[in-house]
């Protein structure tokens, strides 16, 4: 009896400890978001979004150059990476037992675990070292390489969820295989593919390490992908590690903008899937 009492007591203590673990695990997220808003929100004004930085030591200015840079670099990365990732994902789902599919799937897992800084070194040797100058395009290439394996895995999973009966029905109606794949199978799981792509874009938008020695960063507005280019994460890094208080203020505000971009993309990703289920009633 006494022993049972002790076992019950132990069970309760362990559950209590686990609840403490939940609180400890959630606390950093709350703290980080709260500090971002508290220290960053005050600096968000029109000038912040429309102006480029002022010389060090002066106050004011904005990060318009980094917003434009992030849009261009991430947009180009998506143009390079999405077709390869989605195409390979459809291949792996349509020919699941092909040797190439097995290899591609395994390699995608390996690439998913590759540190992003290593991919940055790859892009440097491939583009920057050959051209002898830093460029936004080299940054895009590094980011594209990071998003390909993520997009591959989500696309494959989504295509595989489409019921076989749909495919069979289309083939029975005389559709060729490629039209069955594109206008029936892929069409059905398109929201899922869009979700996966948006999540991958959200993740690469926050990447800093692969841009350090590819896009390099810049204090000026640059729309030329062949030139060094600013980006939001690079701006956060430079300003956070700089010596001026006003730089730190800008770093917080830029980090807040970066987090908002990432969260909005993630939310859009969820909406894309929800709409599909909504329209099916």
């Amino acid at each position: 009896m006494n022993r049972l009492g002790w076992r019950r007591w132990k069970s309760r203590v362990m559950v209590g400890l686990m609840m403490v673990a939940v609180v400890v695990a959630v606390a950093p997220l709350v703290m980080i978001l709260a500090t971002l808003v508290a220290r960053g929100a005050g600096s968000l004004n029109l000038a912040f979004f429309t102006q480029i930085p002022v010389p060090a030591g002066e106050t004011g200015g904005g990060v318009a150059h980094a917003i434009v840079g992030t849009l261009l670099i991430v947009g180009t990365a998506a143009l390079l990476g999405l077709p390869i990732g989605i195409g390979a994902g459809i291949y792996c789902a349509e020919y699941p037992t092909a040797r190439l599919a097995v290899v591609a799937r395994f390699v995608a897992d390996v690439m998913n675990g590759t540190p992003s800084i290593v991919v940055g070194v790859f892009a440097w040797t491939l583009i920057v070292d050959v051209q002898k100058h830093f460029s936004g395009l080299a940054g895009s290439a590094a980011l594209a390489m990071l998003m390909v394996p993520m997009v591959l895995r989500t696309t494959e999973e989504m295509v595989r969820l489409v019921p076989h009966s749909l495919r069979e029905a289309a083939l029975a109606l005389g559709y060729p295989r490629w039209r069955t794949s594109l206008s029936v199978v892929v069409r059905t799981c398109l929201p899922g593919i869009v979700t996966g792509s948006l999540l991958a874009i959200a993740r690469i938008a926050g990447e800093t390490a692969p841009l350090l020695f590819t896009a390099l960063g810049s204090q000026f507005m640059s729309r030329d992908l062949d030139q060094p280019m600013a980006a939001l994460p690079l701006t956060v890094f430079t300003y956070a590690t700089g010596p001026y208080d006003d730089w730190h203020r800008i770093a917080w505000a830029t980090a807040l903008v970066l987090i908002l971009v990432v969260l909005v993309l993630s939310l859009l990703a969820r909406l894309a899937t929800r709409q599909r289920f909504g329209s099916r009633g």
Partner: peptide
């Protein structure tokens, strides 16, 4: 989903 550099920023100042 929080970018690494934001963790760094929070780490330095908080």
């Amino acid at each position: 989903a929080i970018p690494s550099v934001v963790y760094g920023l929070w780490g330095i100042f908080v």
